[in-house]
Amino acid sequence: MIDLTGRIAVVTGGAQGIGAATVTRLAEAGATTIVADRRLEPAQELAATLGDRVHARPVDVSDSSSVRDLVQSVVADFGGLDAWVNNAGIVEDSRALDMPDEVWQRTVDVDLTGTFFGAREAGRHMTAHGGGAIVNISSIAAYRATRPEHHVAYDVSKAAVAHMATVLASEWASAGVRVNAVAPGYTNTEILKGVGSADPEVMAAWIAQVPQGRLIEPVEIANVVVFLVSDLASSITGQVVHADAGYTAW
Rank of each mutant, 00 (worst) to 15 (best):
E149S: 14
M99L: 10
H242N: 07
S234Q: 03
I216S: 14
G6L: 09
A160V: 03
A169G: 09
G51S: 12
V61L: 02
A15P: 07
G194F: 00
V54F: 08
Q212T: 06
I2M: 15
L70K: 02
I8G: 02
A31P: 04
V229F: 01
A233M: 02
L192E: 05
A133S: 03
V195M: 08
T237H: 04
A96C: 11
S234L: 08
R68G: 11
L81E: 05
H129G: 04
P58T: 10
G79K: 08
H151D: 09
A145T: 05
H55M: 10
A249V: 14
V182G: 00
A128S: 05
A43D: 01
D37G: 08
Q16C: 13
G246L: 10
G13Q: 07
G14D: 03
H151A: 10
W172L: 00
A245G: 08
P58M: 11
I221V: 04
A162I: 13
V75M: 15
R57G: 09
I216G: 07
Q209S: 10
S64V: 15
L192N: 13
W104Y: 13
E217P: 07
A159W: 09
S66L: 07
E171A: 02
N180Y: 01
K158W: 00
D98N: 15
L40V: 12
G51C: 08
L215K: 08
Y247K: 08
